[in-house]
Nucleic acid binder design. Structure first.
Lengths: 188, 188
DNA sequence: AAAGTTCTATACCGAGTGGTATAGTGATGG
DNA sequence: CCATCACTATACCACTCGGTATAGAACTTT
């Protein structure tokens, strides 16, 4: 692993554990076993380092979500695939998912929020497209696609956030139950 | 408004806009028109200031949620009251709600998260109690009370967070629709 | 072998960090 | 009239912040 990759890895560890603002450049280079000029050579600035980090990991996430979010007539199936895509990604890249989630809920004027905002818009757009397409088979959903995309992604992030903090298991059964509730409510 | 109150108000503004870590003590006292010893006289430390801030506002929130979360046989009614309590609180204290939400999604090792963690446990306990009591009338919910409390509060925070960022209106109709989906799913 | 390029360390910058020692201030109570 | 008290300003502390000027090492290219 070259220095560039080591810096990225250690920065992710630290940002995920204590947050972007709370971690200094000095601390990152110490954890990576290099000095500051090395970091600034590769990334230009602390913010540049963050941008590269986000770009690399979000690319993988969004690629996998895109692949899962292809509606082919069975809405439940598509939503289940999407949930499993998120769950699988979070399991292989938990630190990143934790960091990224924290940044999305950071104040709107903060560096953190501005850096991740764009990627969340993308995810939201992907899910809204699914619900728009599904209206063909579920006409009663018309006009509510936007709200459904919002609450679907919100539900996923809610469960993943609790899983990341150790409050529940991210089993296939949980995914099934959560999705079933999303589709049919709590009484069935 | 005495200096103590001014400091609290300006600190809330700044924390809500840019986050606890990103705002310095110097900046707070400048915004409040006082000097550092004044702040340290009243609050002892930056963290002490945050604790007082959280205590004061969460006390109001939890009091109102407690009042709404009294189950008397009609689950839908109780949940609607709780949603309206949250919505009303967020509308009168939006900056605080934004700040507090951001802190809850901050990394687990961060000062921010540690400071708000306790208050969220309280809210979660209140809602779980509601679902446990409702099992008397809805036996099929048995064993899922914990997950319901989680997803109910998650849904509320999801909508409030989107409202705080200007993505939707927090109308009575939205509350009704969201609750209806929570209870009966997306197909009805 | 010379020259260019990429990468990394030493040492430093000004500005800002959270926090405090000291010396007052004005109001209150004996 | 004096002492006490809550409160606040000046000036400072050691330390950390993000970022950089300079120079040398390692490796390619010519």
């Amino acid at each position: 692993m070259d220095n560039r990759a080591v810096i990225l890895a250690r920065a992710l560890d630290l940002f995920a554990a204590r947050g972007y603002d709370a971690v200094g450049v000095q601390e990152i280079v110490e954890a990576a076993g290099v000095t500051k000029p090395t970091l600034y050579h590769y990334f230009g600035s602390k913010r540049g380092l963050l941008d590269v980090l986000l770009q690399a990991h979000f690319e993988r996430l969004i690629e996998q979500v895109e692949k899962a979010a292809i509606y082919q007539g069975d809405l439940t199936l598509t939503l289940e695939k999407v949930m499993k895509a998120y769950s699988a990604f979070a399991k292989t890249d938990g630190d990143f998912y934790r960091m990224q989630l924290g940044m999305y809920f950071a104040p709107p004027e903060s560096e953190s929020f501005k850096a991740v905002y764009h990627y969340h818009e993308q995810q939201y757009a992907i899910m809204e497209r699914v619900f728009v397409q599904a209206v063909v088979n579920h006409g009663n959903m018309r006009g509510r696609q936007q709200r459904y995309a919002i609450s679907f992604l919100g539900m996923i992030n809610n469960y993943l956030s609790l899983w990341l903090n150790g409050y529940l298991e991210m089993s296939d059964k949980l995914i099934y139950d959560a999705l079933h509730q999303f589709m049919h409510g709590i009484f069935s």
